[in-house]
Design a binder for these strands. Structure first.
Lengths: 260, 260
DNA sequence: AAAAATTTCGTACACCGTACGGAACAAATG
DNA sequence: CATTTGTTCCGTACGGTGTACGAAATTTTT
């Protein structure tokens, strides 16, 4: 008689946690034994999101979160397997807060909307950029978002693979813009000077040290870019140029292939 | 009589360190007092790069580096102000190792080369993705690189600002591809399974948990994408589609504006 | 020969995630 | 009812991090 070898459950434990609100079937309202839990997973995740929004991801420590509820740090581990899992829960939960608007008819507007929504979200919650999961978009809200993004590129004439890649390019671009904005803000906070002030303070050193090299293009272009970015009162303007080029390229690709 | 208020030297101390090999004028071969330094800054930075290449950026600890030279951890602080400064030195130094090839005539080839070079470099040194500096590209090798990149987009008919933005889009895209490759490799190392194995191990849980929701597009597209990526033996193939679209968009932009 | 400047580096601190084990608690079982 | 059993709560402790501080050693300047 052969015994089935014990499968040590390779499945990721945090999957069920991610989908805890949408267990399609076989929920488990089983009354559990020990003391009643004083808080809920959602409350913990929300508190962690608050912390991250207010003080950055580095401030999201197990001790800090626990303190918000008057709990001991180790208590959190009866709600969440570890910190990394908590970060993934935070990401999915915060993504779920954004309501997905209906997609416009015009293809260009559709793609723009997808990218701008992502960018706005990352601006509101910059710590999302630092949460990189093993195995992405597997939570319920991430899945909803991905499906919605695919709807935006559906019917354009792209292959399945191209649909995925197009979404990836747009998301990546939005993320890069958000990241550069984040770094700029962070630099100002760390150094305590605005970008212009920093350049002024380091001008002498820079010109002394770069005396041997010369950068004609970098000087000209860097100056132009610096002035523009400094004057950029309207955030999100950095998005415009690159986004337009990317969408141009995608739309040109599909119309060229099927010159209707 | 008015006294000039003491300016506590706002300038960034690591700037001189970055440019230590190219001090245009006024070098200081002054013989210094104390004990002779047992190693050089370059050796330290090279050792740190070795460590990062071999075991990732997290393995680059002050203690680990010092141990390579039989030094105490604190000794490093007489070479480098702190760990973050060391990371910037590493980045600039490793960027300096790549020789910049001559730029082709064809605009499309120029842009492709710029992006692919960046991608290859990030593939070889993935930890570069995790080094985010306050105030980017200020080292000598970063500056050379930026100047070279600008040459690639020069003469296309772009404005100064657009030149900067175009380079940024291409670099960002190359970085995103490299990042997704890195995450994939890291996930396989952490979970000890390939991507396909992971999906197999979690298939039951996933379909149970997603029973209530349905993702027609995500299922179809995700499957297609998954199969392709899994079969992708040739790394860098993920680069092709997005890069082509971006370059399409940029070139369309300039030819449209100046229909020669 | 004495003084001054510089490098080396042992120790210590604050902070992190979390392994471990015990105590308090509530339901299931006898 | 008493007892067992599974949970939750959480204090303590461990190994890890960057680095502040101060003493000791070493070399040049005076």
């Amino acid at each position: 008689m052969t015994v089935v070898p014990e499968q040590p459950d390779q499945s990721d434990p945090s999957l069920r946690l991610l989908w805890r609100h949408r267990t399609g079937s076989s929920e488990e309202p089983k009354t559990k034994r020990g003391p009643k839990q004083k808080v809920s997973v959602d409350e913990i995740v929300d508190a962690a999101i608050d912390l991250a929004d207010a003080e950055g991801l580095a401030a999201v420590t197990m001790r800090a979160i626990a303190q918000r509820f008057g709990l001991g740090a180790m208590t959190l581990y009866s709600y969440v397997p570890n910190r990394d899992a908590l970060l993934v829960l935070m990401a999915d939960q915060v993504v779920g807060r954004t309501v997905l608007p209906e997609l416009p008819e015009d293809p260009r507007e559709r793609l723009e909307l997808v990218a701008r929504l992502q960018h706005d979200e990352l601006r509101a919650h910059p710590w999302l950029l630092e949460v990189q999961d093993v195995r992405p978009w597997l939570g319920p809200n991430m899945s909803d978002r991905y499906e919605w993004q695919l709807q935006a590129v559906d019917g354009l004439g792209l292959s399945d693979l191209e649909m995925d890649q197009t979404v990836a390019v747009l998301m990546g671009f939005a993320g890069n813009i958000a990241r550069s904005e984040l770094l700029k803000r962070r630099a100002e906070k760390v150094t305590g000077m605005t970008e212009a002030e920093w350049w002024a303070a380091n001008y002498d050193t820079l010109s002394e040290v770069m005396a041997g090299s010369h950068y004609p293009l970098a000087n000209r272009v860097g100056t132009a870019a610096g002035e523009t970015y400094q004057a950029a009162t309207d955030p999100g303007r950095e998005l415009d140029y690159g986004l337009a080029r990317i969408i141009d390229g995608v739309l040109a690709h599909v119309t060229e292939r099927a010159p209707d």
